[in-house]
C-alpha cells in the first residue's frame, strides 16, 4: 500500500480578514429591512390567512388598530379589545383616535388615511362591525384587513 504523504504546511489558517465585511453586510441588510417594534402588543395576535393579498404603497398613510383577546386577562377580561398605539380603547374612542391620526398627516393626504385592522382570527364579527361603523362615522373609509399569506 502506498503511504499517504502528509502535505507540506504552506498555509495553516483560512484567511478571515474578510469575515467582518461579510457580517457587516448582513448587519446592514437587517438594519435596513426591519423596523423596531415601537409599541408593545397588549392583545393576542394571530392574523388570519388569505390568498388575495395586496400591498399598500405608502406606509405613512397607514394607522393600525389591533383587535384581539387581551394578554393580561386578569385585568382586562377575556372579551376582545381594541388597541390603538399603546393603550386599550373602547369603540367610542375610535372617532377621536382617527381624528388624531389624521392630524398627523398633511392636509392633502388626510382623506387617504388607511386603517389596517390587525384582528386576531378568534375575533367574532360583532366587534369588527362596530369598529367599521365608527370608522364610517370618522370618514376613514379605506381599510385593510391585515392577513398573512396562505401556504399552499
Amino acid at each position: 500500500m502506498a503511504k499517504f504523504k502528509k502535505k507540506t504546511k504552506t498555509e495553516e489558517n483560512i484567511p478571515t480578514s474578510a469575515l467582518p465585511d461579510i457580517i457587516f453586510m448582513l448587519l446592514f441588510f437587517f438594519m435596513v429591512t426591519t423596523v423596531l417594534r415601537e409599541q408593545e402588543l397588549l392583545v393576542s395576535q394571530k392574523l388570519p390567512e388569505a390568498s388575495q393579498l395586496q400591498k399598500l404603497e405608502k406606509k405613512s398613510l397607514i394607522s393600525y388598530l389591533f383587535i384581539g383577546k387581551p394578554k393580561n386577562t386578569g385585568v382586562y377580561g377575556t372579551e376582545p379589545r381594541i388597541q390603538a398605539n399603546d393603550a386599550l380603547i373602547t369603540t367610542n374612542d375610535i372617532l377621536l383616535w382617527v381624528n388624531q391620526e389624521k392630524d398627523k398627516l398633511s392636509e392633502a393626504e388626510r382623506d387617504q388615511i388607511t386603517i389596517s385592522l390587525k384582528a386576531d382570527r378568534e375575533v367574532k364579527m360583532g366587534p369588527i362591525a362596530d369598529i367599521q361603523f365608527e370608522l364610517r362615522e370618522a370618514d376613514a373609509r379605506k381599510i385593510l384587513y391585515a392577513s398573512v399569506g396562505k401556504n399552499k
Binding site: T16, L19, P20, I23, F24, L26, L27, F30, M31, T33, T34, V35, L36, R37, A50, Q52, L53, Q54, K55, L56, K59, I62, S116, Q132, L135, R136, E137, D139, R141, K142, I143, L144, Y145, A146, S147, V148, G149
Partner: peptide, 30 residues
C-alpha cells in the same frame, strides 16, 4: 467579527419584518 456578530444578533432578535399586506376594502360613506 465578534462585535459585528453581536450587533447582528441584536437586530435579528429585536426586529420584525414589516408586513403591510392584507385585503383592502372601502367602507360605504356615512
Amino acid at each position: 467579527a465578534d462585535i459585528a456578530f453581536l450587533l447582528l444578533i441584536f437586530f435579528l432578535v429585536t426586529t420584525t419584518i414589516a408586513s403591510d399586506k392584507g385585503i383592502t376594502n372601502i367602507l360605504p360613506p356615512k
